[in-house]
Design a protein around this nucleic acid. Structure first.
Length: 797
RNA sequence: GGGCGAGUGGCGGAACGGUAGACGCGAUGGACUCAAAAUCCAUUGAUCGUAACAGGUCGUGAGAGUUCGAUUCUCUCCUCGCCCACCA
């Protein structure tokens, strides 16, 4: 008898599927489409790892099921190939990033194929291909022309190790999300994308999406909408007004001082009037040298009064002092606040430290002076003259109106710092002309390709290595024909991935980023598998680009991704994050070699719920490997073929139901166990040929190779992966006899086998007759029966 | 500090408010073998109990509540994980 040998069968079918184009999505098919997407990988020198496996196997299993259910499925793949590792490798070895990237892609392709991934390779895209990034640049120009890309000087996050500016989203707790280095603040001229202009749309759009709540909440919090008012305070003896944003205009009578961020312009503008300017300057230098980390660690309030100047509270004309303090952030609101220590925790803390007056203006009638902490609860206005007695909500309106403030909405979201001072990225297609200013490269001249350089090394000065290539930098201005200089910054990692799913619909189009018909055919992405770590990065950025393209009428749907399915991370066997230094890395390729791709895939699905963090247990794979061997053995025997018992059919149809339903809700782990249960039930029984075929179909989405192999051994000529998914027969699943559990006062006391439609009175009689039940009911009065047909009967005594 | 989520055998984990621990790993005993591995069969939550059956009790982080019945719903608390973090 033949033995199960995955190394023999897997490669064979992978070649046949490729040759037959089994997984190529048909643009013209009449079938209903399903667009299943995974985050395309970065082709690193290390190859793909366990982390990639999780979403890819899930997406593959899901798309195989949909294909069998009769949908035209697109499950594409490509390469997010710009980025630092290739560039760092180039710096070290002097090999051009495009060469190492090509090599890594070839390598990763072999891996994906060996895992049995049913990708549509005919749609493969590569973000570093000039034919691709031509359109990335084209979209950038559209943004630029719409006024959504601008150049500005500002304090930005700077990674001293990557030697480039970073977006707000790329800094996690003061640390560069790429390399783990502490991020510095640096004053630099940078390109920004005005994502804040889309804050409201990004927020509203979320409501239309079938995403899990936790992802929506995370994006909502990141965008951070708050409603309030902008109020102006006059500065005494000066022309200046200090604007503040507040969500609590109702507490204006309690504003006993003001605070500006250390970077606020007023400090330098009113320099001559600030009597203690040297102290102020000293404080500002100190805070500048503090890293984000230090600020987070030490939250004790610091600050310095701007002596010599006072502000006037517009609601009561009181003169109040102004401070500079780093607890006020320059990037949010106006960079200045009115401080109401009685009703704001931070202001309270600051006021305590600097012994400033704390004035209660909202009271619930219970609080009394002196306050021990800020009162942020509900109440009515007090100490607020004619506004006394108003509710907070009423007072917000009335006081804003009274001081001629205006209602305003603020977002926490910051504009996207879009330029990088590195080589391996899309050149920003703009030309600086002395006469005409910033001029976009004409569309017909795209792409602006990356020039060859001798040194990839980032300069660290805030200039990209491209700046050194004079022949590239110096060009003519497309507008006036005079001399111009190219923009030398490149785009961030996230540019190419912000629209790649659009390109998949029409990857070879040379006239447009994708044709209208095909975009209509495939959009939106029905299900997008990916990690939580991209929630406030790629997922936010690409929604922004998509919403912009929708407004410009280039895409047919307002949102790109209908559903997003997050996954948990895979830890090492020790429950720690997989890392080489820990030595707990499980290598998927080694596992394929030892157990086969089918076992790898099935075990990965079996590990635990898709969204849960799971640990890779080396031993566990033996279980699914044994299962596959038993399946193989079952099909080698001809003796077991024959008339089957109804129990076999019942079990089969129950499993058809379970597998189909659970894959559709991404409960892969219970799918695996359902298949194991089925095998346990039919293994030593007579089974029909039809049952054998159905069993293989149930396996096909999870373990495509063994299913295909055995399918063909049964004599089938077509691929199992394009065969029709079995339909379960509800009448076969329903049994005629049920085991009804008998409880007395909620405790299980016995079981009775009864017919399906037994009337309740009969059931009650039978239950009471049961010997064991009798011993618990004897001599007691029966209060009532609760009967759940086919399940349980509870006797309350 | 805020938000979200999770706590179930030795381990990974199952359970529309209805027999808690499916399925798998591991372990123990047995069969096969000269022996081992592989494979197959049986047992496997704790505890009391019995010569052996039988049977009982307790058990889903802790405590309360709703219910005939709670791992599941509500409240309080504890622990862990992830995300955000002086956002006015």
């Amino acid at each position: 008898m033949k033995k199960y040998d995955p190394s023999k069968i897997e490669r064979k079918w992978q070649d046949i599927w490729e040759k037959d184009g089994t997984y190529i999505a048909d643009d013209k098919s009449k079938k209903e489409k399903k667009y299943v997407l995974i985050e395309f990988p970065y082709p690193s020198g290390e190859g793909l790892h366990m982390g990639h496996l999780r979403p890819y196997v899930a997406g593959d299993t899901y798309s195989r099921l949909l294909r069998m259910k009769g949908y035209e499925v697109m499950y594409p793949i490509g390469w997010d190939a710009f980025g630092l590792p290739a560039e760092n490798f180039a710096i070290k070895k002097g090999i051009h990033p495009s060469i190492s990237t090509a090599k890594n892609i070839a390598n990763a392709k072999v891996q994906l194929k060996s895992w049995g991934m049913g990708f549509d390779w005919s749609r493969e895209v590569n973000t570093t291909d000039p034919n691709y990034y031509k359109w990335t640049q084209w979209i950038f120009l559209k943004l630029f022309k719409a006024g959504l890309a601008y150049e500005a000087k500002g304090l930005i996050n700077w990674c001293p190790s990557c030697k480039t500016g970073l977006a707000n989203e790329e800094v996690e707790g003061g640390i560069c999300e790429r390399c783990g280095t502490t991020v510095e603040k640096k004053e630099l001229r940078q390109w920004y994308l005005k994502i804040t202009a889309y804050a409201e749309k990004l927020l509203q759009g979320l409501k239309t999406l079938e995403w899990e709540n936790k992802i929506k909440i995370q994006q909502e919090n990141w965008i951070g909408r708050s409603e309030g008012a902008e109020i102006e305070f006059k500065i005494l003896n000066s022309e200046f007004w200090l604007k503040v944003f507040t969500t609590r205009p109702d507490t204006l009578f309690g504003a006993t001082y003001m605070v500006v961020a250390p970077e606020h312009e007023i400090v330098s503008k009113l320099k001559s009037q600030i009597s203690n300017f040297s102290d102020v300057e000293k404080y500002i230098t100190e805070t500048k040298n503090k890293s984000e980390e230090e600020r987070i660690e030490n939250k004790e309030k610091t600050g310095v009064e701007l002596k010599g100047i006072k502000a006037i509270n517009p609601v009561n004309n009181e003169e109040i002092p102004i401070f500079a303090a780093d607890y006020v952030l320059s990037g949010y609101g106006t960079g200045a606040i009115m401080a109401v220590p009685a009703h704001d925790e931070r202001d309270f803390e600051f006021a305590k430290k600097f012994e400033l007056p704390i004035k209660i203006v909202i009271s619930d009638g219970k609080i009394s002076e002196p306050l021990h902490e800020a009162y942020v609860g509900d109440g009515v206005l007090v100490n607020s003259k004619k506004f006394n007695g108003l509710s907070i909500e009423e007072a917000k309106e009335k006081i804003t109106e009274f001081v001629k403030g205006k209602k305003q909405v603020q977002y926490r979201l910051r504009d996207w710092v879009f330029s990088r001072q590195r080589y391996w990225g899309e050149p920003i297609p703009l030309i600086h002309c002395e006469k005409c200013g910033i001029v976009p490269v004409p569309e017909e001249e795209l792409p602006v390709t990356l020039p060859e350089v001798k040194k990839y090394e980032p300069t660290g000065t805030g200039e990209s290595p491209l700046a050194a290539i004079e022949s590239w930098v110096n060009t003519t201005c497309p507008k006036c024909g005079g001399s111009g200089k190219r923009e030398t910054n490149t785009m961030p990692q996230w540019a190419g991935s912000s629209w790649y799913y659009l390109r998949y619909t029409d990857p070879k189009n040379e006239k447009e980023f994708a044709g209208e018909e095909l975009l209509k055919r495939w959009l939106p992405v029905d299900v997008y598998f990916g990690g939580m770590e991209h929630t406030t990065l790629h997922l936010l950025y690409s929604r922004f680009w998509h919403e912009f393209l929708y407004d410009e009428k280039f895409v047919p749907t307002p949102e790109p991704y209908k559903r997003r399915i997050p996954h948990g991370i895979i830890l090492g066997a020790d429950g720690e994050k997989m890392s080489k230094s820990r030595g707990n890395v499980a290598n998927p390729d080694a596992i394929v070699k030892e157990f086969g791709a089918d076992a790898l895939r099935m075990y990965e699905l079996f590990l635990g719920p898709h969204e849960a963090t799971v640990s890779w247990n080396e031993r566990g794979i033996l279980g699914v490997s044994r299962f596959l061997e038993r399946v193989y053995k079952l099909f080698q025997s001809k003796e077991n073929e024959g008339e089957e018992e109804s129990m076999v059919r019942g079990a089969l149809h129950e499993t058809i139901k379970k597998v189909g339903e659970d894959i559709e809700v991404f409960k892969f782990n219970t799918v695996v166990s359902a298949l194991m249960i089925l095998l346990n039930q039919i293994e030593n029984k007579k089974i029909s040929r039809e049952t054998k075929e159905i069993f293989l179909k149930l396996l096909a989405p999870l373990t495509p190779h063994i299913a295909e192999e055995l399918w063909h051994e049964l004599g089938n000529e077509n691929s199992i992966h394009t065969s029709a998914w079995p339909v379960f027969d509800a009448t076969l699943v329903e049994k005629d006899l049920f085991m009804v559990v008998v409880q007395v006062n909620g405790k299980v006391r016995g079981q009775i086998e009864v017919a399906k439609n037994i009337p309740q009175e009969e059931m009650e009689r039978l239950a009471l007759m049961n010997e064991k039940v009798k011993s618990y009911t004897e001599g007691k009065t029966i209060k009532k029966f609760i009967y759940v047909p086919g399940k349980i009967i509870n006797i309350v005594v």
